[in-house]
Design a protein around this nucleic acid. Structure first.
Length: 326
DNA sequence: GATCCAATAT
DNA sequence: CATATTGGAT
């Protein structure tokens, strides 16, 4: 019964995990020093990112915004491509960038909730239970560096609306896609793309207060590290995407086949075949405080997927959703 | 004071 | 439309 369901859930979960190959392909290569410096993330989220023994490539974009002490220069981050409009800073400039003052007055670019991020979000909420799923907690569980409570709060707000909407809708189609392929698939309005694509934990709907159903435990793998996701990572891509979206209708995706865009970055590490792919919560030194009646497992952790799936024909935004649900 | 939440602004 | 920001309430 319920256990079975959960078991399935788990199974599916694993299936969704990205394969080692998809793991960290690009990523930091695009991070510009500017960007790195630009991120002045005040939050005290830990990010001891031990950085896996990556190849020569530099440590992950752990854009740890170390409070730039006055006497500090941008780390010699190897040469990186410029661009990435971080803003217009200065005026002009162009060229080079120049002013290096870390500008505390920098504003971070809008966070873009990619399916990957959203998934983390949903999983976190699911594991926390509606009760404990408040921005702060969610944020902590997500362990995404750079993510702020406000970011989560905002998204949560929308997410709740989505759930609510879904509650009232059970089978009648209102109009949108008309077809109901399932209880919730009806919602394919452009609005829900993100949400619709992600699996909504059943207990969410129609569920009020009450003890949480308990999610499957997650053995806290004391495994090594997995790359910590940083909002910055997302942001990089986000920026590009956002930019392109705004300025170009679609991406230059070769119709028909040319993929040409698979960022499967944001990966999780630990390809150990045959072993469960659970990773420990990144924040090893900062495990979220056990909420009053928190779900047993403090670390649920989950995966990230590569967002490259264009089925052939669909002209949705690029990082639409991959999860090939059943 | 912190944080949640809903509303509102960009 | 998706996020950010603000304001009121807890």
């Amino acid at each position: 019964m319920r256990e079975e369901e959960e078991a399935n859930w788990f199974a599916r979960w694993e299936e969704q995990l990205p394969s080692p190959e998809e793991l960290m392909p690009l990523s930091q290569t695009l991070i510009t020093p500017d960007l790195a410096l630009a991120f002045d993330i005040p939050t005290v989220r830990s990010n001891p990112n031990p950085n896996p023994s990556l190849h020569h490539h530099h440590p992950a974009p752990s854009l740890h915004p170390p409070p730039p002490p006055p006497s500090s220069q941008p780390p010699p981050d190897f040469d990186s491509p410029d661009h990435l409009t971080t803003a217009s800073s200065g005026g002009g400039a162009g060229g080079g960038g120049a002013g290096e003052e870390p500008a505390r007055t920098l504003k971070r670019p809008r966070l873009v909730w990619t399916p990957q991020l959203h998934k983390r979000f949903v999983d976190a909420v699911a594991h926390l239970g509606i009760k404990n799923a408040v921005p702060k907690t969610i944020m902590q569980l997500m362990s995404v560096d750079g993510l702020t409570r406000e970011n989560v709060a905002s998204h949560l707000q929308k997410y709740r609306l989505y759930l609510k909407r879904m509650q009232g809708l059970s089978s009648s189609g209102g109009g949108a896609g008309g077809g109901a392929g399932g209880p919730i698939s009806a919602a394919d309005a452009a609005t829900d793309q993100l949400f619709a694509s992600s699996s909504v934990p059943h207990h969410f709907l129609g569920r009020g207060p009450g003890p949480e159903p308990y999610m499957p435990f997650v053995p806290v793998a004391a495994l090594q590290h997995h790359q910590q996701i940083t909002a910055a990572m997302q942001q990089q891509h986000q920026q590009q995407q956002y930019y392109q979206q705004r300025h170009m209708g679609h991406f230059g995706s070769p119709t028909g086949g040319g993929e040409g865009y698979d960022h499967g970055f944001l990966a999780r590490t630990m390809p150990q075949p045959g072993m469960h792919r659970m990773v420990g919560p990144v924040a090893v030194g900062l495990v979220p405080p056990p909420p009053p009646s928190a779900p047993s497992a403090a670390s649920y952790v989950e995966d990230l997927e590569s967002g490259s799936r264009r089925g052939g024909g669909e002209r949705r935004m690029l990082t639409l959703f991959p999860t090939g649900e059943d």
